[in-house]
Design a protein around this nucleic acid. Structure first.
Length: 337
DNA sequence: AATGCGGGGGT
DNA sequence: ACCCCAGCATT
């Protein structure tokens, strides 16, 4: 145990948040929490975790649920493939493992929806395996402590970071140390304006010494944002509304929405919309990490002789039974006012 | 090795 | 406008 390890563990004992998945070694609970927390802040994921634990107390409950209901409970959290893989893996563990969660990194890694981070987290938290987790917090913390200028988002460098992380790992209690590393990154060694002035690692931190804290971790380029232009048809007839499910390999796969059309650019969308000014319209700008969507909802009451393939009439009052994406719920919230 | 996948919060 | 978040699957 180095002085650095000790300082991190000491800081953790004093500053750690009391989170429900920290009070258990049940791999089902830990797995569920880790899937929810992938690319998701604790504050955002916590209510979903509580809901899933209440709704599906065991992996058997999750396995026998319908994908539709699981997606419904996941609604609003994003990255919906997480929910589909969660369901797939629950069924897999019940059918092939008699409901017993595999207990080693190598076995856990084979499960769908579980990569190197999540496998290491479950193996170390639940089964005390000596393997370091490597998430955004740990990349940042290691980059700063050792002033590493290797880009963290280049897969070749992942091997090097894993080597460093596993050497750094406190082998006496790997699960606790892994959580301490992530908590330290999340609360103390924050991405922007880290709290160096009160940092117990300051005297050991090479990037602090070299005044490169603000430039660590190094990341290569940024992804380009795609702009998209949608029309949504809100078609109603006899208290029913037309709904369809997105089956394409695209955003919001398997979620429900109104029938839609897409346009290649803003001009074509505006030209089209302008032909329907006699109907109520509402336009939303919806921001995803990787796409900026402009969507115009056109409401036509009592349509007749209008039909869309691959869509179905749904009773208006039961629309909330269907898992939908955030753009849909934004429209529905606005419409109810 | 590079790209796509949500939504919320921060600066 | 840009970054970040308890990453992963696909190509």
């Amino acid at each position: 145990m180095t002085r650095l390890n000790f300082e991190i563990l000491h800081w953790y004992e004093i500053n750690k948040r009391n989170l429900p998945w920290r009070n258990t070694k049940n791999p089902y609970f830990v797995w569920l929490s880790e899937i929810i927390l992938q690319q998701t802040r604790v504050d955002q994921g916590l209510p979903y975790y509580e809901k899933f634990i209440a709704q599906y107390p065991t992996i058997f409950d999750l396995a026998k649920a319908s994908e539709k209901n699981i997606l419904k409970d996941w609604q609003g959290l994003g990255y919906y493939s997480r929910a589909r893989n969660l369901h797939y893996t629950a069924k897999k563990i019940v059918q092939s493992y008699h409901g017993i969660f595999p207990s080693t990194f190598d076995e856990i890694l084979l499960l769908k929806g579980i990569g190197r981070y999540t496998a290491a987290a479950i193996a170390s938290f639940c089964f005390d395996e000596q393997i370091a987790v490597l998430d955004g917090n740990v990349y940042r913390l290691l980059s700063r402590i050792f002033d590493i200028d290797l880009p963290v988002n280049v897969s070749k460098n992942q091997v090097e970071f894993e080597k460093i992380a596993n050497e750094f790992l406190d082998k006496t209690n790997p699960g606790n140390f892994n959580q301490a590393m992530m908590e330290f990154g999340a609360l103390q060694c924050k991405p922007v304006s880290p709290n160096c002035s009160s940092c117990p690692l300051r005297i050991y931190c090479l990037s602090y010494k070299n005044e490169t804290v603000a430039f660590r971790p190094v990341k290569l380029k940024k992804q380009k944002i795609r702009k998209r232009f949608f029309i949504y048809w809100v078609l109603e007839k006899d208290g029913n509304v037309l709904l369809r499910r997105r089956l394409e390999n695209d955003i919001w796969k398997m979620l429900y929405e109104f029938p839609s059309s897409e346009f290649p650019n803003q001009k074509e969308q505006e030209n089209f919309v302008s032909r329907f000014l006699q109907f109520p319209q509402k336009t939303f700008k919806h921001i995803l990490s990787h796409q900026h969507i402009t969507a115009t909802f056109i409401a036509i009451e009592d349509v007749s002789g209008f039909s869309f393939p691959d869509s179905d009439w749904i009773a208006s009052e039961s629309i909330s039974d269907f898992p939908m994406h955030r753009l849909m719920t934004r429209y529905l919230e606005q419409r109810n006012h």
